[in-house]
Write a protein that binds this DNA or RNA. Structure first.
Lengths: 238, 238
DNA sequence: CGGCATTTTGACAATCGTCAATCAGTGTGG
DNA sequence: CCACACTGATTGACGATTGTCAAAATGCCG
């Protein structure tokens, strides 16, 4: 019981044993990727679907002044770009935030999977709808929440999403990313991220040493961050 | 040649005459809605797809302190929530920004349409992928662009999206919304929106009198806003 | 004319960015 | 083992953008 994609998709509803088997088969071909590798670049037109098996990927857009905005984090179990081939070209980059492993599912395999297995098609639909929900919630954060709440909110989200695929159940997450990457995510300067993290540590809301994030009291952090998990559309907690 | 939904979906590729006809049929039932009406509330589980026929709708999320963040604008031709029924419940409100007309397509009709007509199914897919692209671009704006560029960027986007459905070809858009609603959209205070609008008017980048927006030199505005239309995935300009 | 929503203005404060320097950790070559 | 380089974290001073509060002006509609 440890295949992230299966666990993730089962958040949308139970799958049959053969469905699960088909997903495991489809993701057998795995590629290892070093941190900071650009997996898909803006302008590309990929012909396969990627699924994160371990580590973190992100979606990022670059702005003319050299800045960068990260617009999504992908964790194990997350499929990327289930239907990219419908668009002419990628409008952003897909970049490895940490060392990670990525399964590559050719378009034909993907199409067969969704045509022959309605439960899987539906689950992928669910996944993209949730991705949209996450984007909307991030937008709310950017528009209405100060930087400290935004960062806390991100940590809450990462915890719940990891727990949905059987990780971080003890409140501990691997987080091998730099403060600059957090800054690109929450839309503030590196310096300000640093100050905010210190404050969050000060108030004992988080422990973070550069590669491990420990959330000792998630409920308190969620209250601080004004975090309501509804937008993740996860099944009720066991 | 004036059905917004048909024009919009044909951005994804040409449709056959019978496909177009089917879309016109499906959107025959129209509902008029006054500005500020909540069409679908957070927590609802709607069983029909809406399509904007005239006016503006928005997606909005409310935060505990009473604030509100608008996370999307819907203009004529835009379908909303093509597959909502897959999620348990709406995680945000759908609200009329202006008086508008909305077609209501029952779920069964929608499912028949997409099952029987692959080109239409594909076009709806394209539409949701573009919606995601827009969300990502807004996030970039919130994170990396100052308020004046964000507002200018919004205006550029509205112009191009309208032009894609045959409106605003002369650079003039109806915009019967308040500065407070613009503020909720770009994530700044009403006061600041006011100051920014004055500055944009000062520099002759826009004309705006409360219900009409005139963009006399769209190219200049786009340069100012750092606007790259690629994320809208529109077909090349005629 | 009299409300009412909206826009506009000004003064002041808070959040956050920029710049520049320092500190800490890690890996490499001698 | 140590000097060195390099990346990332931290700190402080200062400034810019933007928020808040409160009031006044404008426009709309009955």
């Amino acid at each position: 019981m440890d295949h992230s994609l299966v666990l993730k998709l089962e958040c949308a509803g139970a799958l049959s044993a053969t469905d699960r088997q088909a997903l495991v088969e489809a993701t057998r071909r795995v590629r290892s990727v070093a941190a900071r590798t650009v997996v898909i670049a803006e302008g590309d037109k990929p012909d396969q679907v990627h699924v994160v098996m371990s580590g973190y990927l992100c979606r990022a857009k670059t702005v003319p002044d050299g800045g960068r905005q990260i617009v999504a984090w992908l964790i194990p179990g997350d499929p990327c770009d289930v239907h990219v081939w419908i668009l002419g070209a990628m409008d952003h980059d897909l970049v490895a935030l940490s060392d990670c492993e990525i399964a590559c599912v050719p378009r034909e395999v993907m199409e067969r999977l969704t045509v022959e297995r309605p439960a899987i098609a539906r689950a992928f639909w669910w996944s993209t709808l949730v991705d949209e929900g996450v984007l909307r919630e991030w937008l709310v954060g950017m528009g209405r929440r100060p930087a400290d709440q935004r960062i806390a909110h991100l940590f809450c989200e990462l915890l719940l999403r990891h727990q949905a695929v059987g990780r971080g159940l003890d409140g501990v997450l691997d987080l091998p990313v730099t403060q600059a990457e957090l800054a690109d995510t929450v839309g503030v300067s590196t310096v300000h991220v640093n100050r905010v993290l210190q404050q969050l540590r000060e108030e004992r809301l988080i422990e973070l040493d550069g590669r491990r994030l420990i959330l000792g009291d998630p409920e308190r952090l969620m209250r601080f961050a004004d975090f309501d998990p509804a937008y993740l559309h996860l099944p009720a907690r066991a």
